[in-house]
Design a binder for these strands. Structure first.
Length: 799
DNA sequence: GGGCTAATCCCGT
DNA sequence: ACGGGATTAGCCC
């Protein structure tokens, strides 16, 4: 609409422009006019960009450089130069008046202007505004003259224009002249306006990021302050016992205390585990802390290692399970095989959403905060009272809740739940496999409001020691209010009955998150995770049982923390301002982006190699030193993302009585890490020589992925990116202590008593896919791992 | 009054 | 000449 009426106005503007340019010696004048034009027409103004005299000048400048004929030529190109351009006419006129008249001209200007508006802007003339505009022009006169500034009328670019520019911005925040030129033509904006917009957008993004970082730092400070306070209190009480003045205690004592604290906590944890071991698993009440895990799931050893799409998953699964539903396509999966009616699914989904809402919002009787751990615990009796249902005998219930503020727009957030590939990427460290089995209802719009899909997921911990969990569920996305969305997952009985009883290891009670859009790029997310797991087999080792029980592996907190870190990663990916400390030698935006992509790929590969998922069969190998080391191998025949041939992966996990961030700081400290690794170096070299890469000496290059979202995994590969595939360490709990949280900063004191370190190496042992895995390779990689573990333990002095 | 945005000023390269 | 940082003006809430 604006383009039309603007088109006409264009004529006058461009005709005049060449003259205006010179005449426009006094910016003050145009500013005074700017006020007047406020009355003009809103639509045109919004589109025109060219606002008032200012832009006329701006554009002329640009056009002038474009060539003599610019003014006329632009007529076709810049469709949307609005009636503002008529401003140029007026201004010129008024200027000419003024040039002789000196000071008194502003009234004239006002008049002219009003006139002008009426003449040219036949649209919507608002008398009041016009009057005001005139008034303003007159009133502002002195200051304007003094400051020599001109301002054009306020306007905004149209959503369309912004969308386009935003799109390009995502591609490249620094478009070159040509790109800008093109965009300006396309959008009917002056080239300078496009330039300004990009400039402003960059500064805006920067500001947002800085603010975000500030809030993180602030919460970190709070956390430290609280910690400090707690320690002081400890010291004070200790001091009073020992008749010491607490103020006199030097800071090294404080550190000592801290260490002591950690040790004590580890001891408590150890005792707790002991107690647990001698208590029947069901005996621990319904408080929600209970759990079971699945039996080992390594089954499809030959399974393709590529990123499973939906069909792939079905086939794969059917093949490996020998399930009855061998040839079903995804469509009759739900209608034919499961006999599900859409209406019933919808019903269940809606009920689940209601429950989720209540679970997310409710407080005291339903959720009780544990004094011991600080975590929220579901009061199961209260739960049954509220939501009904009985407790399955063969199952153990896990429930947890956590809330975070994440730095991502609502739309991308929702997409990353509803698009299975994005979901897998978002939670790469937790989701080993995932597939959308069937889309029951697509949902409306880009946000998929009302979307329902049947999904499958295999959830993992970043260690081969803990079996994965397989779960089928319906995911439902729904807008709950103007700023509130819900994503709920719930398992439907019938689906599982129809698949294969042996497959079901885990069911989702209504779980998911309530997302509140804070409309500043941030969203508040309340995550509820509520699982029912078969009590088939316990995790063998008590360490892992403790971890799983505490919800560090599969609980809401881990999900939420992961989400938060990944969102940071995404934002960081887009960031245009790179603090020097983070830009490890990569100067350009594109360069940094591709490094980040590489890092993400490495992380992905690492996560999927290390988990216990049914991608791999893990064999237990006991090293001479007594470590429990797991080894698996796979053949890559067709994934170009990895080298072709036989890939050996060996991993081991240990529990270390140091906090995750101490461990992380240790491992990311290049010098200390090298020290640990160098000692193992002989072995490394040997392995490589042993493999067919005869005599090749490799240096392991560790990508220190010290960026938001990837903290807990440090991956590395050799310089040629061939022989050693992403290898490294994972630390659990991750993303919890290493990064301050905005909302739930003080939760989970219980977890910093120690951390689970998993170390894993992936090595290409042969480039021939038919080669057998050599015993030597296995042994040497075992030696490498146990050596490294020992070194780490020694360095951290925690044997 | 503060936040947001288009635009301007000014400075360093 | 150009881009970025700082600043400003106009509008909206």
């Amino acid at each position: 609409m604006m383009s039309n009426n603007n088109n006409e106005n264009q004529v006058s503007a461009s005709n005049v422009s060449s003259r205006t340019k010179d005449l426009f010696a006094s910016p003050a004048l145009s500013l005074s006019l700017a006020g007047i034009f406020r009355g003009g027409n809103a639509a045109a103004a919004a589109a025109g960009g060219g606002g008032g005299g200012g832009s006329a000048e701006v554009e002329d400048g640009e056009e002038g450089s474009g060539g003599g004929g610019g003014g006329r030529k632009r007529r076709e190109e810049t469709v949307e130069i609005s009636s503002e351009n008529s401003g140029a006419v007026v201004m010129m006129r008024s200027y000419s008046c003024r040039s002789t008249a000196g000071d008194g001209e502003f009234e004239m200007v006002g008049e002219h202007d009003d006139e002008n508006d009426e003449e040219e802007d036949d649209d919507d003339d608002d008398d009041e505004r016009n009057a005001k505009g005139g008034e303003r022009g007159g009133g502002g006169e002195k200051t304007m003259m003094k400051s020599k500034k001109k301002r054009k009328k306020y306007h905004r670019h149209t959503p369309e224009q912004i969308r386009e520019m935003e799109a390009l911005f995502k591609e490249s925040p620094h478009p070159d002249e040509k790109q800008r030129q093109q965009l300006s033509k396309q959008l009917g904006l002056a080239p300078r306006q496009v330039k300004f917009w990009f400039q402003n957008r960059r500064t805006q993004i920067k500001a947002i990021q800085e603010r975000h970082e500030n809030s993180l730092l602030k919460s970190h400070i709070d956390k430290l302050r609280d910690e400090n306070k707690a320690l002081r209190e400890t010291i004070a009480s200790a001091a009073s016992c020992c008749c010491l003045n607490s103020d006199l205690l030097p800071s090294s004592d404080e550190q000592h205390l801290r260490l002591e604290n950690v040790k004590l906590k580890a001891e408590v944890e150890r005792l707790r585990v002991l107690v647990e071991k001698h208590t029947p698993p069901g005996g621990r009440g319904a408080a929600g802390a209970g759990t079971t895990t699945t039996v080992a799931t390594s089954s499809c050893s030959g399974g393709s290692s590529d990123r499973h799409n939906q069909q792939d998953h079905n086939n794969n699964n059917n093949k490996s399970r020998g399930s009855a539903a061998t040839t079903t396509t995804s469509l009759d999966f739900y209608s034919g095989v499961f006999g599900l009616e859409k209406a019933r699914v919808l019903d269940v989904a809606n009920q689940a959403m209601d429950e989720l809402k209540k679970m997310a919002a409710a407080n005291d009787p339903l959720w009780v905060r544990s004094i011991e751990t600080g975590r929220e615990i579901l009061n199961y009796d209260e739960y049954l009272k509220e939501f009904g249902g009985g407790r399955g005998r063969a199952a153990v219930v896990e429930a947890s809740r956590s809330s975070v503020v994440v730095f991502l727009e609502i739309q991308r957030l929702l997409q990353s739940f509803m698009d299975v590939n994005q979901w897998k990427e978002m939670f790469a460290c937790m989701v080993a496999k995932a597939a959308t089995v069937d889309v029951i209802c697509n949902g409306d719009g880009p946000n998929r409001n009302g979307g329902i899909q049947l999904m499958f997921a295999e959830l993992q911990m970043l260690t081969p020691m803990v079996p994965t969990r397989e779960v089928y569920f319906v995911r439902y996305c729904k807008q709950l209010g103007p700023y509130e969305w819900g994503i709920v997952d719930v398992s439907i009985d019938k689906v599982e009955q129809n698949i294969d009883a042996s497959l079901v290891k885990c069911r989702k009670r209504p779980s998911g998150c309530i997302i509140h859009d804070q409309s500043n790029g941030h969203c508040k997310v309340v995550w509820v995770e509520h699982l029912e797991c078969q009590r088939t087999a316990a995790v063998h080792s008590s360490i892992y049982r403790t971890i799983v029980n505490s919800g560090l592996a599969f609980g809401a907190k881990h999900w939420a923390a992961t989400l938060q870190l990944q969102c940071e990663r995404i934002v960081f990916f887009m960031a245009t301002n790179v603090p020097t400390k983070d830009s490890t030698g990569v100067a350009t935006f594109a360069g940094r982006k591709s490094i980040l992509r590489l890092a993400q790929r490495m992380t992905w590969t690492f996560c999927h190699a290390v988990g216990a998922s049914s991608y791999h069969t893990w064999n237990k190998v006991s090293a001479k030193t007594g470590e429990d080391i797991r080894v698996s191998s796979r053949k890559n025949l067709n994934d170009p993302g990895e080298p072709f041939g036989v890939i050996l992966c060996a991993a081991s996990s240990v529990w270390l009585p140091v906090s995750p961030h101490v461990l992380f700081d240790f491992l990311r400290d290049e010098a200390r890490r090298n020290e640990v690794m160098t000692k193992a170096n002989e072995t490394t070299t040997w392995i490589l020589q042993d493999s067919s890469t005869n005599g090749y000496e490799s240096t392991i290059v560790y990508a220190q992925v010290d960026i938001p979202g990837m903290q807990s995994v440090i991956t590395g590969c050799d310089s040629s990116n061939i022989t050693i595939l992403p290898s490294g360490f994972s630390i659990l709990p991750d993303g919890i202590d290493s990064r301050p949280q905005v909302i739930t900063s003080m939760e989970d004191k219980g977890s910093d008593g120690g951390s689970l370190l998993t170390i894993a190496f992936q090595i290409l042992t042969s480039t021939s896919p038919t080669a057998k895995l050599s015993v030597e390779s296995v042994e040497s990689v075992n030696a490498l791992i146990s050596c490294t573990l020992r070194n780490i333990k020694t360095s951290l002095e925690c044997e």
